[in-house]
């Protein structure tokens, strides 16, 4: 909630080599268009706010019906929101709610852009497990892009999940 939490979240998410982009609501449509400019298409879950796509200029696909094989098409990106986020660990939490869709959507495409509002950020993991609206929904906690350290403990980004993760942070409402 506080500006400190937003800053900590941004710093910690950045530590994982996620792209972190603070922006104002006015800048949002252009920023998203820039981030997604290279995508062959943008997958959108149900409930995506219209202003997120206002300037996109890329083909959009409804996330509701796509199969895993379709989502595997080269160059696809996915644009979502999240349920909550954790400052201490730089973690996004998705629960399949509005603008998030099925778990598949943020897994198969190679590029994930996620919009986080400052009001969604909690301090640490224990705050998160209490704040979750419904813990029995399918939950995914995402902390940076997919990675492995299995080869000589060298961190390599992007094994099976999206190799690129961009997080767009909106400031607290005044």
């Amino acid at each position: 909630m506080t500006p400190e939490l937003s800053a900590l979240f941004a710093a910690r998410a950045g530590d994982y080599r996620a792209g972190v982009h603070p922006c104002t609501p006015a800048e949002l449509p252009d920023l998203l268009a820039t981030l997604l400019a290279g995508a062959s298409g943008v997958v959108l879950p149900a409930g995506t706010p219209p202003e997120w796509t206002a300037r996109l200029g890329r083909p959009t696909l409804s996330g509701d019906t796509l199969t895993a094989a379709q989502l595997d098409a080269p160059g696809l990106a996915v644009l979502t929101g999240c349920a909550l986020a954790v400052a201490e660990t730089g973690t996004l939490v998705l629960d399949g709610g509005v603008a998030q869709g099925r778990r598949l959507l943020t897994l198969v495409p190679d590029h994930h852009v996620c919009v986080v509002r400052a009001a969604q950020i909690v301090a640490d993991v224990p705050d998160l497990v209490i704040a979750l609206p419904d813990p029995t929904r399918p939950l995914t906690m995402i902390s940076g892009p997919s990675a492995t350290s299995d080869i000589e403990l060298n961190r390599v980004e992007g094994v099976h999940g999206p190799r690129r993760l961009d997080i767009v942070c909106l400031p607290p409402h005044r």
């Binding site: 660990t89 813990p135 939950l139 906690m141 902390s143 999940g161």
Partner: peptide, 10 residues
């Protein structure tokens, strides 16, 4: 601080 992916399902 946190692993890349944690899935919780019921």
């Amino acid at each position: 601080r946190m692993n890349p992916y944690t899935s919780i399902f019921t």
